[in-house]
Write a protein that binds this DNA or RNA. Structure first.
Lengths: 105, 105
DNA sequence: CTTGACACCTAGCCTGCCTAGGCCTAGGAT
DNA sequence: ATCCTAGGCCTAGGCAGGCTAGGTGTCAAG
């Protein structure tokens, strides 16, 4: 309903994968944990984001069929690492811009 | 095209009005100036936002017909001031959450 | 043998920013 | 006289994308 990620979803997912979350479910848990509960994203948000990122060649994936539970394991591509760096930069610029409008108090 | 306000548009507009931007065009200029050019919002973004905020009773307006050029002059309502305070709080929580996921470097 | 955690997927709703137009006045330039 | 630019306002509709709500299946515990 209310967009909790504020347009930063793909950056968040890239950062989670970069931080070691190798598959979709782990990304969801990592985002919840690392944000202190602020980002408790439904699967219907995260899985399509992973697919979009793969379509953009920022993530690569393969099936890991380790005995029973199948997982799609993701890793950053080189474009993905670059996009993450740029995303961090853009995020900081954006946050500064909002702060300068909204004020310090 | 690319959503430059990241879901923070109404907070930004409230903050601009609070900072003295009394009418729509002034809000646009204030956001551009105070953000160092980061928020260069089209009229088609800002005017509907002002209307939404007024519909929610966060802003009140009246026509100022000062010789020729007509302007719709806005001011924060008490609900608007409260919403601005809450919006600042929520923004800071959100920014912290993103930062904690995305990391410092 | 049912519950719940783990794990994946997607059609379509809905919100809301933006594009792309429209309208009008004032003042300077041509 | 006429055009252009800046100021000032407005809205229909495109479209992106987060989320709802449903689906599939495995595994361990009670």
């Amino acid at each position: 309903m209310t967009d909790t990620t504020g347009g930063q979803l793909e950056l968040l997912v890239l950062a989670a994968v970069d931080a070691g979350a190798s598959h979709g479910y782990a990304v969801i848990e990592a985002l919840r944990a690392r944000s202190g509960g602020a980002f408790d994203l439904p699967e219907g948000t995260v899985y399509p984001a992973l697919h979009r990122l793969e379509a953009k060649d920022l993530l690569a994936s393969h099936w890991a069929d380790g005995s029973g539970r199948r997982r799609r394991v993701y890793q950053l591509t080189s474009s993905g690492r670059r996009a993450l760096r740029e995303g961090r930069r853009d995020w900081r610029a954006f946050a500064r811009a909002v702060a300068s409008v909204v004020g310090a108090p």
